[in-house]
Write a protein that binds this DNA or RNA. Structure first.
Lengths: 285, 285
DNA sequence: CAGTGGTCTAGACCACACT
DNA sequence: GTGTGGTCTAGACCACTGC
């Protein structure tokens, strides 16, 4: 029996191609044979993974391909179990991991939904700056001022960070965020122009809510993770002017690379935070 | 039968007291980001939680009480299942959560072990400072210089942060960490004197490995989590002298509160990081 | 009411580590 | 070989949601 348990580890992906998402999409991974134990294995030692990991990969593919869209419900556990010909428990374990990575959200009695930046309670998931007193909400809405939005050729370092093909151009956006009526964040963002065709300063200005929500809704690019590097620094004259601080005011410099599904980099950000009224919060565990 | 499944949710904690370790501590658990919320221990309204959560709490208690010590193996899943009169799967789910919180570590074929700061691969789990070039290891051993170690009465703010009883005193330790031969971190630590009786500058100086490893081994205090607040700042003259930087050099100020089991605060730290050769790294997800 | 995710159990077999 | 955690299945019942 194809769906039997016995060969799940060694043969399942081969002997039991499953239905997977659709004929249009290639099998997600590990569609190779060969034993991890076999000593003579040449290059390309295939990755044998547990069934639930394979299911997870298949689901990641559906998310990435846009088959399931942000804020929508994905098929129920039962349906997925049927689709992939595994037990509900195996699907559950795959979903557990996706939920742990904040890619989907479970809601008891309702279903499992694709996570989105356009949701109240995660609106500031990627912003770690908090006011020293009160809460972000109590400061009133964040005010955004777009200073610049243009297309240009990236420097080599930037092109590498974004893993661009030679010749690809980027969009650079410079803006100021005002919290509590005071200019607090000055940031430059660089985006692959191909992915964000047609993005305008106007669009950025008029948009309400998190910028990543706009990217997700209008360009189908969903940020799933980001890496930040922090430093203390001093502003140059222009930065000081824009943030309305003295040239001697130390600022927090935050460099960020944002990633989408499969850890593909899709944004580089370099920001200056004023930390005289706010602080950057982090949890270690 | 006490172990029956049927009433697990509504009655288990009451009708099925199990052995549990003791009812002394109301399970604060990983409470939702929500507010202070009612502690649910008004004698008439016990907190009903899933069985595996109760098992988890019982295990937390064993960890906290020192029944299972760092780096030691805890009883096998089967043994725990017998002890608590539940199925192995339920124990597994409890352990899964403890492992996700880095409180225990599973090792296939060997057992499940109490996490420890005295292990190579997690040696710098709470230090997010990385050299701009190379790795921490390539910089050679971290050099520690203890500048101060004394007992004093805490200021009100500090006493509150550490949740000290009136009159309790604290130990203050000031030290410099040198990375790559250059003084890079200047930090003050405050510890409840009662918990760290007998801690000496000598002991801190001679200790090899992470400080939290010393606390864990010699004082039975294991840090499980920490909250940090970051700012850019300028050093005062003494700080500048100690770090061998100009008075105008911006530094990263890192305030930390470290917590042990049950989120009890046991350390306050205030540090200055040089970020001209290093940076603070963080992952958002 | 039916459907969803949440919890619990029981039993099977696999991969790994020690002895 | 024995014991450990790791994976998978099957089936049960509970709790929440919305019709």
């Amino acid at each position: 029996m194809c769906t039997g348990y016995h060969s799940f580890h060694w043969q399942a992906a081969v002997a039991c191609p499953r239905t997977m998402t659709s004929p249009t999409t290639a099998p997600p991974e590990a569609s190779r044979t060969g034993a991890i134990a076999s000593p003579g294995e040449p290059a390309g030692t295939p990755t044998f993974s547990p069934l639930y990991q394979q299911i997870k990969q298949a689901m990641l593919h559906s998310l990435q391909a846009g088959e399931w869209k942000p804020q929508e419900a994905i098929p129920s556990e039962m349906e997925l179990a049927k689709r992939y010909s595994v037990s509900q428990g195996t699907v559950r374990k795959a979903i557990d991991e996706l939920a742990a990575e904040n890619l989907v959200v479970r809601r008891q009695g309702k279903g499992t939904f694709v996570a989105s930046h356009n949701e109240r309670h995660v609106e500031y998931r990627f912003l770690r700056l908090y006011p020293d007193q009160g809460t972000l909400d109590s400061e009133g809405p964040t005010q955004r001022t777009i200073l610049e939005c243009r297309r240009l050729r990236p420097q080599a370092e930037l092109a590498q960070a974004l893993q661009l093909a030679p010749g690809e151009s980027v969009l650079q956006i410079r803006r100021i965020l005002s919290l509590g009526g005071r200019p607090t964040i000055l940031e430059d963002m660089w985006l692959p122009a191909q992915l964000f065709k047609g993005l305008t300063a106007e669009q950025l200005s008029s948009h309400q809510g998190p910028t990543y929500g706009l990217f997700e809704r209008d360009f189908g690019v969903r940020m799933t993770r980001a890496e930040e590097r922090l430093r203390a620094t001093l502003p140059d004259p222009e930065q000081a002017r824009l943030l309305q601080v003295d040239a001697g005011t130390p600022l927090l410099q935050v460099e960020r690379i944002s990633l989408t599904y499969n850890d593909m980099p899709v944004e580089v950000r370099k920001a200056l935070y004023r930390t005289d009224t706010h602080h950057y919060r982090n949890t270690l565990s």
